[in-house]
Simulated assay, not measured.
Amino acid sequence: MRQRLATTLVGIVGLALAGATTAGPAGAAERTETDARTAPVRTATAPAKAATVEKIANRPIAFEVVNTNETSALCLADNRPHVLRGRLVGPRSKVSGSAGRLRVNVLVHDAGTGAWFWNLRQAPAFDYATQLARRGETSLVLDRLGYDRSPLANGHATCLGAQATMLHQVVQHLYSGNYRFIDRANEDDQPPHATHVVVHGHGTGATIAQLEAAEFADVAALVLMSAPTATPTGQALRAVTDQLGRCVGGDGYSAYGATPAEFRSLLFASAPAKVRRLATARRNPTPCGDVSSVLAAVGSATLTSGRVEAPVLVLSGGRDARVRRLGRAGAEAMFGGSARVSTRTFGKAGSALPLEAGAAGVRETVLRFLAGVRPTL
């Protein structure tokens, strides 16, 4: 019975995800796929030079949020207050709260990973947040509720609609400065206010980011990596089947990938062995409320995608084991209300783009896109 229910749910998810690619002409996504070497992001402004950025700060921070669902993705959460923790990574003068315009990049992780995905300090060449900081960018590396430094006792007590709502609360707190340094030295040590926020999402985190941008309209831009709104592969559907089957048993949390080897095969195609080992050692179980609400979240993100007005960058891996590439035509059809839609495919990469062998190219593409983003305040 448990397996039949899980299989049925995944079948529905598969149909919903497959339907997400039908917004444009048939076959458009496949016809427009290009390799990263031949499809630069269209922007008039070059990224910041890699030159002389000051010392990087990496400070722990905390946000008070309410785990409630205010999106169109129908799912239930506990409606209780929680603390989300993360780290603010950027040039020291910006992280210290100095005056002036400040862009904050909010980095939203996938199922089964965590904030470490964006801030893998044991492998500096693949530390997305720190490498962006060396180019003058400031990032919030956030543990979503139910992961690492943002614990949740009952994994059934949240869902992806609530995750998008809490992301909205975090964005608003960044604008107002209503959050705190955990290691605050004195009363004058206050965190900075953002003048504009760009949300970067990977995998399920991309669905959360997309849903937040569509329904709350408070971000300056979106960077979507390996987004599940593209067509899922059979391997991806089998992984979700396994997760759902174990969640029906009531344990509250379920691993993404039944084994460490499967986890690696879902995320990676070209990452160095050291990166794969580090990621495997840090993988997290997924809150079952997130797993069981995948259908609702992906469906709502797809249906509301035309409401995203901010510029959108869609990044894909040519060897992604989980989703097939959306393509430029498909992305432009999906985000028809966006001010600017850019796409890029990295031919040799799998799903985990910031951790794959072409990670430097991913960052350069993002930096070029960010150079054209304007403040919302």
Rank of each mutant, 00 (worst) to 15 (best):
266 L>R: 08
120 L>T: 13
195 T>M: 01
307 R>Y: 10
307 R>W: 06
34 T>C: 14
182 I>F: 00
362 V>P: 05
300 S>M: 07
209 A>F: 02
263 F>R: 10
28 A>T: 08
90 G>H: 03
343 T>Y: 08
25 P>F: 08
374 R>E: 14
199 V>E: 13
126 F>L: 12
119 N>I: 03
230 A>N: 09
66 V>F: 02
223 V>I: 15
5 L>M: 12
370 L>A: 02
131 Q>F: 03
211 L>I: 01
202 H>G: 09
254 S>D: 07
188 D>S: 14
212 E>R: 11
330 G>M: 06
143 D>R: 06
203 G>Q: 11
85 R>P: 02
233 T>W: 14
252 G>F: 02
267 L>K: 13
288 C>G: 08
363 R>I: 06
207 T>Q: 03
61 I>H: 05
194 A>C: 00
343 T>R: 08
300 S>V: 03
237 L>Y: 05
8 T>R: 14
32 T>L: 06
265 S>R: 15
40 P>Y: 03
40 P>C: 08
345 T>Y: 00
106 V>F: 05
341 V>K: 06
250 G>E: 04
308 V>F: 07
90 G>E: 04
257 G>L: 03
230 A>D: 09
112 G>H: 05
18 A>Y: 13
19 G>H: 13
17 L>F: 01
43 T>S: 15
344 R>K: 15
27 G>L: 09
333 A>Q: 02
154 N>G: 10
283 R>M: 08
359 A>K: 07
323 V>T: 15
